[in-house]
Design a protein around this nucleic acid. Structure first.
Length: 683
DNA sequence: AGCACGCCGACT
DNA sequence: GTCGGCGTGCTC
């Protein structure tokens, strides 16, 4: 009788670090074509509800009679094939230990969102959220003469009044799927995927003029690939990919944003045809699932994706490229708080025969350090070369900014203006009350936007109606500071015919923008105001990156002149920055020399003393002797989304497992603890 | 993470 | 009486 059942370890998506043992009826397994169990998605009863889980181990010799807990049965196996392969389960397990991220949540957030089903207890059914991931638009303006049911009329009226709505929005309002489907069938409304992707229909496979280079180019190893333009780098990748395809090997190219991804996709699709796949969060649900399983099954594919594509268990993976490796978008902001650079390196270590390329025009300090330590090598033996452009530094302040800009632009055309300030004005000020108008949820001054006119919290993005009178004293409010909208308005007024482009940020957009004759970079020192050890690096990148887009003259308008990035720029020596920055970080004990773990405590009525006593209680309970830390201090944004926030930075803390205990202790006290191993920003 | 239970103050 | 906020306990 006992032999009719198997026992398996399941990772359940809850914030618990353990896995859970479930029983599986062998008959359920025998029904499947593919008998592999590891990496499979399963539907489970869990506590008072249900969850999907992922099988990560088989309990061969497990004796259920000896267990001191009730063992529940797996209810269903919904997929034809496992989602993960054994090696990816192993890699993600190791990473979840390293980043102190619960294994269940780690695996859960790796898979396409449309497979992350949730159980709705009140409706007693599985919510397959994401399957209808599209926006609906009305195709007609007037519905008076149409034959419609009451519900259809209501949906159409709603869509016409609002212009558009997501499927989710409509179902939340109580409209059924059937009503929406009927309207679609009648052609009265149309749907569009959240991100519309233009399909390149070309069916031809590899172009004639692309010949594989042979093995002299493809080296196994991890590399830093720097200083060549993206177009040059892409040429190199195409050659490696072509060679890989001939050998049935697959390639993964990761980009920091979707716009870049789409541009490269169209280009590569023209060369490699149906071998090319694209994967990013905004893709339609079906497409994401199809792509996932195709890449897992087929030989010799190419995947272009954003950070989430690193989790796809691609078959015969031989090349991983991380473009713009310095990008902040490679540090995940939700659980698991992985750094994709590190995930890629883990995959490289686990799989033999893999080429891993970290590419960037201005690489991160950490990656340059890895190269210096010979952990990674230099691709093609290229060093950091300084780009060619005439550099002018202007020490100007805001009062003379417009005049300065007019003088520069007067004689020129094809100009790019960069200023990292969104909106029209920086904030609204009441002179009588001496106060800034702030976000009710974050206590941060609201930015003024003109199109459309509104106030917006720069942190939580909550939008407010514009006001011109103080809500306390009714005094008229004053707009202070400037944003790109205001700058644009002022400049275009003087030069209505000039060819001028405005951008807030061009980092990570290297291949979206053409080169400009003249580039003007306004007050990039805003990057220095972040209270973070990587601020100088960000400032360095923000003053250097525009040079790669400059054909002739580069104007840097700044008041922050006495610092290492400016010195390196003036001496035209990139290595100087990396050398001195690394020396500084070594002396001050910053990463990559010391490992940081950032603990962020958040709660509705949380006080500093509550956090202190929790932390001290933990230190005492586990008798922790060797611990070095800074804090408890207020977070850079101490009040965010109606929560108070406090932080502690642990330095080189070895007993990571004890942090799981701290996490549980915090949970018991209703304090949300976010553990960020190797944080990208302290904020 | 998500659910239930129990306590307590506020409001009918 | 009972509604809701939140502290606590539990999850194979």
């Amino acid at each position: 009788m006992k032999d009719n059942y198997l026992y398996v370890d399941v990772a359940v998506p809850v914030s618990i670090f353990d896995t859970f043992i479930y029983r599986l009826d062998r008959r359920k397994l025998e029904k499947l074509k593919d008998h592999q169990l590891i990496g499979r998605r399963v539907l489970l009863p869990f506590n008072q509800t249900k969850h999907i889980g992922i099988i990560i181990d088989l309990k061969g010799e497990f004796n259920p009679d000896e267990a001191d807990f009730e063992i529940k049965d797996i209810e269903e196996i919904p997929d034809k094939y496992p989602i993960y392969t054994q090696d990816y389960i192993d890699i993600l397990r190791e990473l979840s230990e390293f980043y102190l991220s619960p294994i269940g949540l780690t695996l859960y957030y790796g898979i396409p969102d449309s497979l992350r089903w949730k159980y709705d207890k009140s409706k007693n059914r599985w919510d397959r959220k994401g399957f209808n991931n599209y926006i609906l638009y009305p195709s007609v303006e007037n519905i008076d003469s149409l034959h419609l049911t009451k519900r259809q009329r209501e949906v159409l009226e709603f869509l016409i009044s609002k212009g558009e709505a997501s499927y989710e929005e409509l179902t939340e309002l109580g409209f059924s799927r059937r009503v929406i489907e009927n309207l679609l069938k009648k052609g009265l409304i149309k749907k569009e995927n959240l991100f519309f992707l233009e399909e390149n229909k070309s069916r031809h496979s590899i172009k004639q003029d692309i010949k594989p280079f042979g093995n002299d180019l493809i080296k196994i190893g991890a590399f830093l690939y720097s200083s060549e333009s993206f177009e040059k780098r892409l040429e190199t990748y195409i050659n490696i990919i072509a060679n890989n395809i001939y050998e049935g090997k697959s390639s993964l190219l990761i980009f920091p944003n979707v716009k870049t991804l789409k541009k490269v996709y169209t280009y590569l699709k023209g060369i490699f045809g149906e071998k090319v796949y694209i994967y990013f969060d905004g893709l339609s649900s079906k497409k994401k699932i199809d792509t996932w399983f195709n890449l897992k099954r087929l030989n010799g594919t190419i995947c272009l994706g954003t950070f989430s594509s690193i989790f796809i268990p691609i078959k015969n993976l031989s090349l991983i490229v991380l473009e713009e490796e310095h990008s902040n978008s490679y540090k995940m902001l939700r659980a698991p708080r992985f750094d994709i650079r590190n995930v890629a390196y883990k995959i490289f270590q686990k799989k033999k025969n893999l080429t891993l390329i970290y590419a960037s025009s201005v690489p991160s300090v950490e990656t340059v350090y890895l190269k210096a330590k010979k952990v990674i090598k230099s691709f093609k033996g290229i060093n950091l070369n300084f780009p060619k452009a005439n550099i002018f530094i202007k020490n100007t302040d805001y009062s003379t900014l417009i005049k300065e800009l007019k003088d520069i632009i007067k004689e020129r055309n094809n100009v790019l203006i960069i200023t990292n300030r969104r909106g029209y004005s920086s904030y609204l000020f009441c002179e009588k009350c001496n106060l800034e108008i702030k976000c009710a949820r974050c206590d941060i001054p609201l930015k003024v936007f003109k199109s459309p006119k509104r106030l917006e919290c720069p942190i939580c993005k909550t939008k407010y109606k514009y006001i011109d009178r103080c809500f306390k004293c009714d005094n008229s409010l004053e707009e202070r500071g400037f944003g790109i909208e205001k700058l644009k308005e002022n400049i275009e007024k003087f030069f209505p015919r000039k060819d001028i482009t405005f951008e807030t940020n061009i980092i990570d957009k290297e291949f979206l923008l053409d080169d400009f004759d003249t580039v003007i970079n306004i007050f990039p020192e805003i990057y220095l105001y972040n209270n973070d050890f990587r601020s100088e690096e960000r400032f360095f990148r923000s003053i250097l990156y525009p040079i790669y887009k400059t054909k002739k003259d580069y104007f840097l308008i700044t008041k922050s002149l006495d610092n290492l990035p400016i010195e390196s720029l003036l001496k035209e020596d990139l290595n100087l920055f990396y050398k001195k920055e690394l020396e500084k970080r070594k002396i001050l004990g910053y990463p990559p020399f010391r490992q940081f773990i950032l603990l962020s405590f958040e709660g509705k009525n949380l006080t500093k003393s509550k956090v202190e006593s929790l932390f001290n209680e933990w230190v005492k309970k586990f008798d922790i002797k060797e611990i070095e830390y800074e804090g408890v201090f207020f977070a850079f944004h101490p009040y965010l989304r109606e929560n108070y926030r406090y932080q502690i930075i642990l330095k080189d803390f070895k007993k990571k497992n004890l942090l799981k205990e701290l996490f549980y202790m915090a949970t018991k006290k209703s304090i949300k603890l976010v553990i960020d191993v190797s944080p990208k920003e302290i904020k």
